[in-house]
Design a protein around this nucleic acid. Structure first.
Length: 567
RNA sequence: UGCCCGAUAGUGUAACGGUUAGCACAACAGAUUUUGAUUCUGUUUGUCCAGGUUCGAAUCCUGGUCGGGCAACCA
């Protein structure tokens, strides 16, 4: 009714690609069609940067009532594998998207071969028999023009013959290449007679041994988009210099011409998006695999406990521009907290147990107390947690000599055990040899069942706890940043980037104590351990006999901030 | 030394020649709280620089500065 309500409606994500597509829809270019695609090479697992691209491409298609394909750009048989194809499909689906068409660049090998022959017939491509070193040397430099070699002047007939014999398998790897005949003096290096085909007697994960020559990415990519009728070929900034080549290849053959639009790839602090380096981490066993919860891969963050909704919200939050920035990991963490805060059931778990004996509580008595499952969602209901004479609390929740900012348990101090009773610490028992506190002897106030004192007295702190008698022991894996430095891309040339891996990126706790209700948690189950963070049952290593929880994210920790600030 | 691209609070982004330059995260202060969580309120901080066009410029133009990309038979 009011204009204010209209204005308050959250705007659809605004970015320059939306603007371009909206304008095309307006002007009728592409006949009003919108058809995007996500074109990964199956040579590794997808990472968060790919998630941004997936959300962009599939999101655009959805917004404009168009289509989005999944296409594997599989032109390099040496590096590609079906394992990666499968993982990529899993990841796209996990993010919540379904492709309209499923294609492989290798589906187009025959067509692309014919395109190459057409270029040869038009005198626009030639077989070069130089060595790799010669090709490199003849290309010139950023400031100097390249040089022509005699092969550039081969006749059409000669090129046709040689190229067909390349396909027939008459030559060894590297003996010849097919190159476009454009301009060896072009200021854009990409246009200096780029290589189109190379000889590789290699087995391809889809075409098997049908081919011994393979088109290069630059020769294949634009044609693939053209063949699929893609309207907007969205890619990252580093392909901007290649756009003139894709345009040239398509226009010389008079083919359907998509519009390429480049955007800046995502960079996150404390991690890195290089597939090559991620592969190195996997191969050197620096992590447990592509799906190690510390990895920035989609498989990794999924196992870590992130939700698809949080990932999509994050991708929307970071935006789409042509500026190469560095986004704080905090933004990602905030996205998953925001989602899980609303949806994750609460439970109590003690990571570093400190035994508490209630001296005035009857031996053997079990009190079943009602606890709220999710304060953010009343429909989640309540559960019963057992309260007994011996309990565990968090070591961090007790200080023998508390600083004035510390509100939790200390000798002589009273705190509330969540959903239970007020307790007062009477004595801290120490190991006579080490001086380590081994046990707290406390009294409870029987009149405070549920947590409120009839006399109205207040306590400054509520802490979580678990019954020692009925605790479930579990393994808990605490994850932190993969790298200890913010900007991993900033590591100087020549320096070993792996020395900056965070040695504390994984802390394993083998004997955490969980409340009884968690005993039957299934793999993938997400919940909040109150006051600690969001956790999820590991999908690979957890068994009913040996539960394993992964920490997805901590809760915000004001005390830690205060103490850090105070020195 | 060539070509291409970019620049808005600490960070990531919005603003389409006219808004007190908006939002999110971060930071700070306060309120609420049986999670030092959540929630709510408020505060600090910004148009790279110099010229020009215009009644009016973050936006258009010119020049500079700074940053990114490009010389794989990788993608």
């Amino acid at each position: 009714m009011s204009t204010e309500e209209t204005a308050a409606t959250p705007a659809a994500p605004s970015n320059f690609i939306h603007d371009i597509i909206a304008e095309h829809a307006q002007s009728g270019r592409f006949g009003g069609r919108v058809h995007t695609r996500f074109p990964p090479e199956p040579n590794g697992y997808l990472h968060i940067g790919h998630a941004k691209s997936i959300c962009l491409n599939f999101g655009l298609a959805k917004t404009y009532g168009g289509k989005c394909n999944l296409r594997f750009d599989d032109t390099n048989p040496a590096k590609e594998d079906v394992e990666y194809v499968d993982s990529i499909m899993d990841d796209v689906r996990w993010l919540g998207f379904e492709w309209d068409g499923l294609f492989y660049a290798s589906d187009y090998f025959e067509t692309i071969y014919q395109y190459a022959e057409q270029l040869i017939e038009k005198g626009l491509a030639y077989v070069d028999s130089s060595t790799t070193e010669e090709v490199r040397a003849q290309r010139g430099s950023l400031t100097e023009a390249g040089q022509h070699n005699p092969y550039r002047e081969r006749t059409v007939a000669e090129n046709r013959d040689l190229f067909r014999r390349m396909r027939a398998g008459e030559f060894a790897d590297g003996a010849h290449v097919l190159r476009a005949k454009i301009d060896m003096a072009h200021p854009n290096m990409t246009m200096r007679d780029p290589l189109l085909y190379r000889i590789r007697h290699a087995h391809h994960h889809r075409t098997g041994d049908a081919w011994c020559i393979y088109p290069l990415y630059d020769f294949t990519h634009g044609y693939s988009d053209s063949l699929e009728g893609i309207t907007h070929s969205i890619c990252t900034l580093e392909f901007e210099n290649h756009r003139p080549l894709y345009d040239w290849l398509i226009d010389e053959l008079g083919l359907y011409h998509p519009q390429q639009i480049e955007f800046a790839r995502l960079n996150l602090t404390h991690t890195m998006m290089s597939k090559r380096k991620l592969l190195e981490l996997v191969e050197t066993k620096s992590v447990s695999g592509w799906d190690d919860p510390r990895m920035p891969t989609i498989a990794g963050i999924r196992r870590r406990g992130y939700t698809p909704a949080a990932m999509r919200a994050f991708c929307e939050e970071v935006g789409v521009t042509r500026f190469n920035g560095l986004t704080s990991m905090g933004v990602l963490e905030n996205a998953v907290r925001a989602d899980l805060n609303k949806t994750a059931p609460r439970a109590m778990a003690v990571l570093k147990p400190l035994k508490v004996v209630l001296t005035n509580y009857p031996e053997g008595q079990v009190d079943e107390l009602e606890a709220v499952n999710n304060p953010e969602d009343p429909a989640a209901g309540t559960r019963l947690v057992p309260f007994t004479k011996t309990l565990y609390i968090e070591q961090d929740d007790f200080r023998e000599d508390p600083p004035k900012q510390f509100f939790r348990l200390a000798p002589g101090r009273e705190v509330r055990l969540r959903y239970a009773y007020l307790i007062t610490c009477q004595e801290a028992v120490k190991d006579p040899v080490t001086g380590e506190i081994t046990e707290l002897r406390c009294t409870y106030d029987p009149l405070t069942r549920g947590g409120n004192a009839p006399d109205g007295r207040k306590v400054k702190s509520t802490i979580h706890w678990v019954s020692a008698e009925q605790a479930v022991t579990a393994e808990v894996r605490l994850y932190d940043h993969l790298f200890s430095i913010e900007n991993v891309a900033n590591i100087p040339e020549g320096e070993d980037w792996k020395t900056h891996l965070n040695p504390k990126s994984l802390e394993v706790i083998s004997d955490a104590k969980l409340e009884r209700s968690l005993a039957t948690s299934q793999p993938g189950y997400r919940c909040q351990f109150e006051r600690l963070g969001y956790f999820c049952v590991d999908s690979k290593d957890s068994t009913p006999e040996h539960l394993v929880f992964n920490r997805t994210a901590t809760l915000k920790d004001t005390l830690a901030k205060i103490e850090k600030r105070g020195g």
